[in-house]
Design a protein around this nucleic acid. Structure first.
Length: 484
RNA sequence: GCUCCCAUCGUCUAGCCCGGUCUAGGACAUCGCCUUUUCACGGCGGUAACAGGGUUUCGAAUCCCCUUGGGAGUACCA
């Protein structure tokens, strides 16, 4: 039997980091088994769902590099893949369930139900539907419906216990009496989650359901429906849930939770995937930087962890940096070009400059956005302040270094937009010889004069990437400061 | 309240199923040293955990029970 799994998001918001992780696990499982991955849009909540969100989520998924074999816009032989377009199917199944006594029409008013529930809770009893509408005949139902009365279809919960054989949790026993008769079809004829989920998983021939632990309890209801329908349930795997630093459900309070935000912040999709994958699954060789294609043959549900990881992205920056280094400089240049809109110097520079710039900073940059910061620094005329700068300022040789650099740069800026590494090297040598400066005072003074900063990457390369005009300005500025 | 799930360094985790090889391993973060005429990268090293109690056993991080703590569900949301 070929594996068929699905990712079933609700288009009620942007793609959430938790959803992306669930989707990734389904993707990896499908790929590792040579199976099929289906995208199913769960848009039965008409008020909260929108096509805009559906579209946005699909774009985020595409950015991540997760591809589907079947879905809306892709097609497939068990469609349609939007639940709102499948309501006929659900109605048919509901009718069938009513016919064989597994479901019934209910006309109880919401406020009456609320009151009964509150009363049960007050007595520490489990609130369950009390069976008021059990006795309604088919004629009575037709009659009330014809008169325009609003009714729902409820599932008649059997009084027995169920056992779930979960791939992650192993044997989970749900005792009888855990839930009351729940709604299958709302008064607007739209199905509820547990109902359409089961119907679709059967009709779409899903073999494995990999989802968050928040659905563990729902599985009981779903098991009951499979039972009533005489269908064999798929294999279930309930992965741990991502939680925030305060151990609460992940929300906006914990920082960026949408995939789109990470894209904007300059994270690489492969790094995000890598990090997300590690939150709840472990590499058999304990490797922690890897690509998805590399782990597909190793992926398995048996390495899922049961406990909920705290989503705290300490490690994401590290992984992102590692993935940026893994990229060829050509590839990095193309990614960064697509990313930045503000770093015009980069976009307008020749390829050679781009590559040298990226190579110089990629060891340190944690996100693509960091390159923008380095780009800004490259053109900054500001002289940094601080203790270390003061120390360099206090060196008696710094002034002559600044003077030397001003003298040597002034005649060339008009004709040479960028100096070479060799030129900078030659000037340093010249200063050593003519000024008699050497060692730390020379290098520190030179760095401050040329970059305005006490620290930074290789001075010669850095200088060769900086417009010579800027270099001169900085040297002049330092000289002025020392003269005043 | 009731039901279900979970519990190893600050964080992600390995080990747990098939008790001894665990004075509990790795990674991130952190600290120190080396390297680098700066910073970073890199290398080396350090600090740091089996929630508590009890059972079984010659022996428990590993099996069982209880307690505690956390999470989820208890909707005409998904």
């Amino acid at each position: 039997m070929t594996v068929r799994v699905r990712f079933a998001p609700s288009p009620t918001g942007y793609l959430h980091i938790g959803g992306a992780r669930t989707c990734l696990y389904n993707f990896l499982f499908a790929k590792s088994q040579g199976g099929t991955l289906i995208l199913r849009v769960e848009d039965t909540d008409l008020d909260r769902s929108s096509r805009q969100f559906e579209q946005a989520q699909r774009e985020d998924l595409a950015w991540l590099g997760i591809t589907f074999d079947e879905g809306p816009e892709i097609g497939g032989h068990v469609g349609p893949y939007r639940q709102s377009e499948r309501h006929k199917i659900y109605e048919e199944v509901a009718t069938q369930l009513i016919a064989n006594g597994h479901a019934f029409y209910c006309f109880c008013r919401e406020e009456v139900l609320e009151r009964k529930k509150a009363a049960a809770l007050a007595q520490n009893l489990n609130p369950a539907y009390d069976g008021t509408c059990y006795g309604l005949t088919a004629e009575e139902v037709q009659d009330r419906l014809a008169k325009g009365e609003e009714g729902v279809v409820r599932f008649k919960v059997p009084d027995k216990s169920y056992i779930l054989h979960d791939l992650v949790r192993h044997e989970v026993v749900f005792p009888a009496g855990m839930v009351g008769d729940f709604v299958l079809l709302r008064s607007n004829k739209m199905p509820t989650y547990n109902f359409c989920c089961v119907v679709d998983d059967i009709k779409m021939k899903i073999t494995h359901v990999i989802r968050g632990e928040d659905h563990l309890n729902n599985t009981l209801r779903q098991l009951m429906i499979y039972d009533a329908l005489g269908a064999t349930p798929p294999q279930f795997a309930h992965a741990s849930l991502l939680i925030g630093k305060d151990r609460q459900k992940l929300s906006k309070r914990h920082g960026a939770t949408s995939v789109a935000q990470y894209r904007e912040d300059g994270y690489l999709p492969e790094a995000l995937l890598n990090y997300l994958c590690l939150l709840g699954w472990s590499h058999p060789a304990e490797k922690d930087v890897f690509t998805m294609s590399e782990i597909i043959p190793l992926f398995g549900i048996d390495r899922f962890s049961k406990s909920s990881p705290i989503y705290d992205l300490e490690k994401l920056a590290y992984i992102n940096n590692q993935h940026m280094r893994l990229l060829s400089v050509e590839e990095l240049a193309s990614r960064y070009s697509a990313f930045t809109t503000t770093h015009s110097m980069f976009l307008e520079s020749p390829t050679d400059w781009k590559h040298r710039f990226l190579n110089l900073f990629k060891e340190k940059a944690q996100t693509l956005k960091d390159f923008e910061m380095y780009g800004t620094q490259l053109l900054s005329l500001e002289l940094e302040s601080g203790e270390e700068v003061d120390q360099i300022l206090a060196m008696p040789t710094t002034k002559s270094i600044a003077q030397f650099l001003v003298d040597v740069l002034t005649p060339v800026v008009a004709t040479i937009p960028f100096v070479t590494e060799a030129q900078v090297g030659a000037w340093m040598d010249a200063m050593k010889n003519t000024l008699g400066v050497k060692g730390k005072p020379l290098f520190l003074g030179g760095r401050l004069a040329l970059t305005g900063q006490p620290h930074g990457p290789d001075l010669k390369i850095l200088s060769s990437l900086t417009p010579s005009k800027i270099l001169l300005e900085r040297a002049k500025k330092l000289l002025q400061k020392l003269n005043s």
